[in-house]
Design a protein around this nucleic acid. Structure first.
Length: 434
RNA sequence: GUCCGGAUGGUGUAGUGGCCCAUCAUGAAAGCCUGUCGAGCUUUCGACCCGGGUUCGAAUCCCGGUCCGGGCGCCA
């Protein structure tokens, strides 16, 4: 049995006279003596419950108007068209029931009248998410996932799950979280990269995975997390250019889906979402260095990874999504395919939003000998990759793919200040609870 | 990790040596009020991160610590 018949947002003045049952939280009350207004909040909005002393009787009126803020309430009543009420209707209750009272004082103000620091909000995240603008971001995140899954389905991509508990630091470099796994040491996986490539060798042809990744890096910024959700794609018989087109379509499609299906949430956030136009600009790494060199003080050498300052400069001058392509092979991972005629440059790319990197991808090395050579060049030991390399000895299709950060996509889409605003229970350098 | 800034009622803040048994808003408690919609009005409640020091006197200055924010670094 579901207790409510309607959400607040589903009710309008045309429903005058209809019996409804609403369930939610007591957002606030305004008590005028002989009449009082109880505002009920659920995930679709607010509804005014009008309490009239003469209609309810003295006792019922007294108890209804003294409900503490944020208590869980159930209201059975009649919709009444009322021009004086917000949104043109109010609920005249037959019964107001407190299903569970809230203690006072509250850890923060869910009506958003008083500002609240991020740290305080995260400590009481359950209460923070009651704030409509916070909830709106997570509902939009869900819509983004719905859009992406739909897009993958249309393109005949198979959804898979790969292990998050792995045996070794499979890619070298990045710090992994060690865990205890019975009598063995194990790690939380930093990326599904090696597994999705192995699935190309398995003949699955096109796979995607949406799942958590873990990085033990000590970064401490507004755009990094130690646990994140990655959207990964890998496609056989495709090159880097092909998967870049898939990526830009996926991103633009997510924007379009949100613009069309999340009007209420966008209104709550005060956003006029603009769908980025396709295709995104393609800029090579060398061109990017040239652009940055025009700016005084740029001291990037060819072969350096782009520093934050250069990245920001490029973002500001371009002002929309763009791809950075043709990176130096030396700064991309071993599985990135170098160009045949000039191997110092590789078929790796990053998808950039003016504020930050959103995704990175590449055409992969699919030749066994070349892959072993690249692993050695990076100073890694091929023996540690045997489980992966094995898949390259028995026929590996050429393939390409990418990984896209979900929270960064949502953060940049909604212009959120901090990536923690795009994660329900974020894990960062210092936070492990809630 | 590093540089800079910060920590004052439940929440957000004002307060640069005495004018502070600490400001304002929100909140909470009690009361008045029949159309509020950030309702209004009256009364009340509730705080200087921890430890040490300087000083006649410290929320305020100094030292150490803890925690938080921002920048950078790190980011296969």
């Amino acid at each position: 049995m579901i207790l409510r018949t309607h959400y607040s947002g589903d009710i309008n003045a045309e429903m005058d006279g209809k019996e409804v049952t609403l369930a939610g939280f007591a957002h606030e009350t305004r008590d005028l003596g002989g009449i009082a207004f109880l505002v009920l909040r659920d995930r679709k909005g607010l509804a005014q419950i009008t309490l009239v002393k003469k209609l309810l009787g003295k006792e019922a009126f007294k108890s209804a108007r003294s409900i503490s803020r944020e208590s869980v309430v159930l209201v059975k009543g009649t919709v009444k068209a009322e021009p004086k009420a917000p949104r043109g209707f109010e609920i005249l209750p037959g019964e107001v029931q407190v299903l569970n009272p809230a203690q006072v004082p509250l850890p923060l103000d869910p009506t958003e009248k008083v500002e609240c620091e991020l740290d305080t909000r995260l400590d009481a995240r359950f209460m923070d998410i009651r704030r409509p603008s916070v909830l709106a971001a997570f509902e939009i995140e869900s819509a983004v996932l719905e859009s992406l899954r739909g897009f993958f389905r249309e393109n005949a991509v198979t959804e898979v799950f790969t292990p998050k508990i792995v045996a070794a630091a499979t890619e070298g470099g990045t710090d992994l979280f060690p865990i205890s796994y019975f009598e063995k040491e194990a790690f939380l996986n930093q990326s599904p990269q090696l597994y999705k490539q192995m699935l190309m060798g398995a003949g699955m042809d096109r796979v995607f995975e949406i799942g958590p990744i873990f990085r033990a890096e000590e970064h401490d910024t507004r755009r990094h997390l130690n646990e994140a959700v990655s959207i990964d794609l890998e496609v056989s018989f495709a090159d880097d250019k092909a998967v870049m087109e898939i990526l830009e379509q996926a991103v633009a499609g997510a924007y379009r889906h949100v613009a069309e299906n999340c009007r209420y949430q966008l209104e709550v956030l005060g956003l006029d979402l603009k769908v980025p136009s396709l295709p995104f600009r393609r800029i090579t790494y060398s061109e990017a260095l040239g652009l940055a060199a025009d700016k005084a003080g740029a001291k990037m050498q060819w072969g350096d990874d782009l520093d934050t300052e250069t990245e920001r400069f490029l973002g500001q001058s371009i002002g929309e999504h763009y791809f950075l392509t043709d990176w130096p092979s030396s700064i991309k991972p071993y599985y990135t395919l170098p160009y045949e005629d000039h191997p110092e440059v590789c078929r790796g790319f990053d998808l950039m939003h003016p504020r930050m990197e959103l995704a990175s991808g590449a055409q992969r090395v699919h030749d066994y000998e070349q892959l072993v050579g690249r692993i050695k060049e990076k100073g890694l030991d091929p023996d540690g990759f045997e489980f992966y390399l094995k898949a390259f000895r028995y026929g590996m299709p050429p393939h390409a793919g990418w990984g896209l950060g979900l929270s960064r996509l949502v953060m940049t889409m909604l212009n959120l200040e901090n990536i923690r605003d795009a994660v329900i229970f974020p894990r960062d350098r210092k936070r492990l609870v809630p």
